[in-house]
């Protein structure tokens, strides 16, 4: 499914947080959202996922304006993973992943075969099958993040939005999660802080600065010394890597 946004604008009170952003994500593509803190990555992601209403502009998923689609129907196609969501409730891993089936179930419907398959598959994808009975409170930060992703997968979405999914993860799981998201047969938009990971796993990268789209394109077209200096205010050396078109960034301490 494709995701198309036209002239999105959003803000609170008089402060504009996302201004006039347009973008297109092709079916199956992985788009990385990067930008400094407060550049509007999370807000843009929520606008795209339909969790916030833009002041102006529109989002189309698979050619349909999401403002016209009921929330429940949209959630069967679109999953959203927020950063480190927490709870005090004493739930198990399996309970949490089962929540992903919420949009597919009517109020009193029983647990169906497709529900079970989706949950088992999702647990398997994030390598948590053997720990499905474990209480949520006993998981590490990284494990919680993987369970959140499994819950999103249990929605069997065609589009997935992830807000910094690699926070709290060790480097092995960071790469594991991003590789998994890239290899999934779905369209995804990921907000990321780590520029090298963005370069490694995203088909295209979009750079936001103060709510404005600064650049959008393939990693080697976007991650240039000039952009790193102007937007991220760092001096860096960008070199080609063995993977064609995937630059490697080495930051300078000077």
């Amino acid at each position: 499914m494709s995701v198309v946004a036209e002239n999105l604008r959003w803000g609170v009170k008089r402060k504009t947080i996302v201004s006039d952003v347009s973008l297109t994500v092709a079916p199956g593509e992985t788009l990385g959202l990067i930008g400094p803190n407060g550049s509007g990555k999370s807000s843009l992601l929520r606008l795209l996922a339909g969790l916030r209403k833009p002041l102006s502009g529109r989002v189309e998923i698979n050619g349909r304006d999401i403002a016209q689609i009921p929330r429940k129907v949209l959630s069967r196609q679109v999953a959203f993973v927020q950063q480190s969501a927490a709870t005090d409730t004493n739930v198990t891993v399996r309970d949490v992943v089962r929540l992903g089936r919420t949009p597919h179930r009517s109020a009193l419907a029983g647990w169906s075969e497709p529900d079970e398959t989706a949950v088992a598959h999702a647990l398997d994808r994030v390598d948590m099958t053997s720990r499905r009975a474990q209480p949520w409170q006993t998981l590490s930060g990284g494990e919680r993040q993987r369970v959140h992703i499994a819950r999103a997968l249990a929605q069997t979405p065609q589009v997935m939005f992830l807000d910094e999914p690699t926070n709290h993860l060790d480097i092995h799981h960071q790469i594991e999660i991003l590789r998994m998201v890239r290899d999934l047969d779905l369209t995804s938009v990921i907000a990321l802080h780590d520029l090298n990971l963005a370069a490694m796993f995203c088909d295209r990268i979009l750079v936001l600065e103060a709510g404005v789209l600064r650049a959008c394109g393939t990693p080697d077209a976007v991650l240039t010394q000039a952009i790193l200096r102007d937007v991220f205010r760092v001096t860096a050396h960008v070199s080609g890597s063995p993977d064609a078109g995937r630059p490697h960034i080495r930051f300078s301490s000077e």
Binding site: K72, V73, A79, V91, L99, T102, H148
Partner: peptide, 15 residues
Amino acid sequence: DAFTFGDEDAAALGV
């Protein structure tokens, strides 16, 4: 149940 992880999560689950 979908409110377990907060309002925004519930919304993302179609509630």
